[in-house]
Design a binder for these strands. Structure first.
Lengths: 169, 169
DNA sequence: TTTGGTGCAAACCGTTTGCATCGCT
DNA sequence: AGCGATGCAAACGGTTTGCACCAAA
């Protein structure tokens, strides 16, 4: 997946078709529209925003379908979600610069320190987006607890929420 | 979780006292307990988790107080939240490695690319936490739209959600 | 026909808010 | 007394789920 292609959106649609066919899921009109809408933006819309957008072209679509489609695409590894998890707000009293390890399976978030990473500089491009306050690295992975299926105490302190592990990748 | 330091927790509590006194907010028993609980962990608990923890020592506290306290501490700059915003899940169809600029005011999230940042390596410490899948940089700041108070189109495509801007005051 | 997808409405759950009370200054 | 903080319960809003219907294989 290099860049410089004329249309990453088209590519994404192509990828969608491949994966969908491969997985045996139907590519309905709604699903195509929803994915197309999402693939065409980098604004990381939420379900409702996508819903409204799609609705203007497919008036019969329902919000539920948007949700179901998005999670299905997520299961297929075609879309990701931003942030640690689709759950509650999480708080942090550590004001010192630090970074996050996020378990995509259980939602656990743990800090780690790194002088090197603290010192990283962001490209000037970002300045055009707004004033930078700070930056940190977010590492995604599977935490140790989640790797041993024996233990069920997945998140140690931050779970009790895993129903259908929406995780894919 | 080692504590060779003179205890960052104590430091945080000290900071809390200073800031609170300075801002003229009362440091009630509940607030102290809630903050202490949060300051003592790096597990980034959610409100309910903190609630349960505090409850064992202060059986009379209510979940509402935990919420109100946390947001108050947030307003005072004593705690931060993890993730883009305390709102809906946001989706992303961009599977290529990329990074995020997040506006802390309106919640806008935009992508930016950077070869250098793509190449960053995380310290080995992280491996102890779990298997690393990927890593990206999350930059926090104020987006251009939010900086001009004249325009009300804060998030351009990703808002319509700001009620009481919990941001500072 | 069988199966998966969709729409609708109700259920769920995390979070917020109105209001009366309580405690500190 | 005055005022902020708290607890309770109700309200809210985003997300999920059960169920019946529809469409494609």
């Amino acid at each position: 997946m290099r860049k410089q292609e004329p249309s990453p959106i088209a590519q994404r649609l192509e990828h969608l078709k491949t994966v969908a066919k491969d997985a045996g899921v139907k590519l309905t009109h709604q699903r195509l529209e929803i994915f197309a809408e999402l693939a065409a933006t980098d604004a990381h819309p939420d379900a409702e925003t996508l819903f409204r957008a799609v609705q203007s072209r497919v008036p019969t679509v329902s919000l539920d379908t948007v949700y179901r489609t998005l999670w299905k695409l997520h299961d297929l590894g075609l879309v990701t979600t931003v942030g640690p998890k689709r759950v509650s707000v999480r708080f942090d009293a550590n004001l010192a610069p630090h970074h996050h390890f996020v378990c995509v399976r259980c939602g656990l978030v743990r800090d780690f320190a790194s002088e090197k990473l603290n010192a990283l500089r962001v490209p000037e491009t970002v300045s055009e987006m707004g004033t930078v306050l700070n930056a940190h690295v977010e590492v995604r992975g599977i935490c140790s607890a989640c790797q041993k299926p024996k233990k069920k105490n997945a998140a140690t302190a931050a779970n009790a929420l895993s129903k259908t592990p929406r995780t894919k990748s």
